[in-house]
Write a protein that binds this DNA or RNA. Structure first.
Length: 534
RNA sequence: GCGCUUGUAGCUCAAUUGGAUAGAGCAUCUGAUUACGGAUCAGAAGGUUGGGGGUUCGAGUCCCUCCAAGCGUACCA
């Protein structure tokens, strides 16, 4: 890749100029501003101190040396600002990008190997099976699924899981609430209320265990709505099954071997404070029951059977949970860095200008189902992935539905539809793309054309940063940029118009095809469809 | 009180993880269509990056300190 070639040239030049050990901070990057060239290096700024020169002086020497030994495509070099060396490249480097995109195609362009085959277990959503998933939970579905897709493209082997808390106090209460609703009795103390309880109770047959039936009803609902969002899990893990297989006792034994288990006040504790937790935690309550924590440790241990690296995606309301789980896993001999927790900030839902507080028990929830039915899966999913999970998200339900047609997702999908429209129109006129190897790409020199290629060229870098930072929203940003570049190209560079030279037409047809490939890759990573018509 | 996270344009959010003049969308205003889909394109306006201090060639980004918001601080799950 061009970037590596430039970096290698910079390294050589630095060594030639007496910088024996090139600092790690030396990079080749894309300048923020076009007038600063196509690529730029901070080498002189970072290395100046080591050789006792001022940055501009070193930068000039660097530029001179690189000018005398030009890397491929480089047309001009200049020194700017505090000592940046800027590379100006001939458009040929972008024509090479087009060839690369077409050759590698949807399946392989931007595919990276940085994951090196590491198996990663990603758990997300894991909403309690005591009701429908609310619109806030949809964020984790969209995020987790896209993260898995992103990791798969970057050389990891992700395995996605949904943990089902299908036993314990809450599930019993849920069953009781269903039974009460069916019998027309009052909701039990701290029980579950809401329209869905009444609806489900009405569906419930007479001769079933309400808890078991209710959990299954809830899971069916969750599976369907997640599938509608294009979110699929490789494994649905049942807490109940784990417990019935004796996993708690087993994990307790293993924990005891760490010497960190002790009894106090009639309860059994794990000394999680040994590994960074603020307090020790209870494994077995004084009434003899396991806490939620114990089977969950067993579950996390179990997940290592399906991944060498664990990722938990948790809402901010569960962030306090991470230190104790990490401590427990360390106690079990797992490397601290093999357990990763991603804390996502919660979603705030606004309707009629006021926040909707969500609680399953109070029955006041906005279901993800409602959101999808109202705005569509693509709009919902794109909206979730529009921003970083580090920042709290405000979803204005009114805005999302009334502005559905102005949603950025349509802007991107429209670009795709236009490309397909060109294809249809070309077919109708009997115009075909001739083999790329015979097409003269040098005619692609319009700024609009080059901009499309520039955006396409950045995909590998975007994916690298996105996967390292667990930030699929960067893919969203990129795909919007690509759509913008394409719309600009489409507007200013006609392809099928009768006065367009055949050479130009061929090159532009291929450019459109490369754009299609880029959009397809980006939208697929986001789990959003790429319709051919709109 | 303590801990985690966040604070960027009127609104919703970006910003190549320390780079050059902080960018998009929406909303507002102004332009563009004998065209392959106008769900488009171009432009204007909008900012003391919550306040203050520090680190260095260089800070929205790192450190300290205030301010504000969200979340957490169970022998609940």
């Amino acid at each position: 890749m061009i970037r590596d070639q430039l970096l290698a040239a910079v390294h050589d030049a630095l060594v030639h100029l007496g910088v024996d050990t090139v600092p790690d901070g030396v990079v080749v990057e894309r300048p923020a501003r076009r007038e600063h060239g196509d690529w730029s290096t901070n080498a002189a700024l970072v290395s100046a101190k080591a050789v006792g020169k001022n940055p501009r002086e070193l930068g000039q020497a660097l530029a001179d040396h690189l000018d005398a030994n030009r890397p491929p495509h480089v047309e001009a070099l200049e020194i700017a600002g505090p000592g940046f060396v800027n590379f100006r490249l001939a458009p040929t480097w972008l024509h090479d990008v087009l060839i690369e995109v077409i050759d590698e195609g949807e399946a392989d362009y931007g595919r990276l190997s940085i994951g090196d085959g590491l198996t990663v277990n990603i758990e997300f959503v894991s909403a309690n099976p005591t009701g429908p998933i609310h619109a806030g939970g949809g964020r984790w579905g969209a995020y987790g699924d896209s993260l898995a897709r992103l990791m798969a493209r970057c050389g990891y082997e992700p395995h996605t899981e949904f943990y089902i808390n299908d036993r314990g106090v809450q599930t019993v209460l849920f069953g009781q609430s269903l039974a009460a609703a069916k019998a027309g009795d009052e909701t039990p103390e701290k029980g579950y209320k809401g329209v869905y309880i009444d609806d489900w109770a009405a569906e419930m047959p007479d001769d079933v265990d309400p808890t078991t039936w209710g959990i299954e009803r809830s899971l069916t609902d969750s599976r369907l709505v997640l599938a509608d969002m294009n979110v699929e899990f490789d494994t649905w893990s049942s807490e109940k099954a784990l417990v019935e297989a004796g996993a708690e006792a087993e994990v307790l034994d293993r924990l005891k071997q760490s010497g960190l288990v002790y009894d106090k006040d009639g309860a059994t504790w794990l000394k999680t404070s040994e590994y960074g937790d603020t307090d020790d935690r209870v494994l077995i309550k004084s009434d003899g029951e396991y806490t939620y924590f114990t089977p969950d440790i067993a579950y996390h241990l179990d997940k290592y059977n399906r991944g060498d690296h664990l990722i938990d995606i948790l809402g901010a309301d569960h962030h306090g949970y991470a230190p104790r789980m990490r401590a427990a896993l360390i106690a079990l001999g797992k490397p601290a860095e093999s357990y990763e927790v991603i804390i996502g900030q919660n979603v705030k839902l606004v309707r009629d200008g006021t926040e909707v507080k969500m609680s399953k028990r109070a029955g006041d929830i906005v279901e993800i189902r409602d959101l999808i039915d109202e705005v569509g899966a693509d709009v919902a999913r794109f909206a979730y992935l529009l921003q970083s999970v580090d920042s709290p998200q405000t979803l204005d339900l009114d805005l999302l539905s009334t502005q559905a047609s102005e949603n950025p997702v349509f802007y991107v999908q429209y670009a795709n539809a236009r490309i397909h429209s060109i294809g249809r129109e070309a077919a109708e006129r009997g115009i075909e793309r001739s083999p790329l190897s015979g097409v003269d790409l040098s005619v692609l020199d319009h700024e609009r054309e080059l901009e499309v290629l520039r955006v396409l060229s950045s995909l590998p870098e975007v994916l690298e940063v996105a996967v390292k930072e667990r930030a699929p929203h960067k893919v969203t940003t990129w795909v919007r940029e690509l759509a913008a570049a394409f719309h600009g190209f489409y507007r200013d560079c006609p392809i099928l118009r009768s006065d367009i030279e055949p050479e130009t037409q061929q090159a532009r047809l291929w450019l459109a095809e490369a754009s299609r490939v880029g959009l397809a890759i980006g939208l697929d990573l986001l789990g959003v469809s790429a319709p051919e018509h709109m």
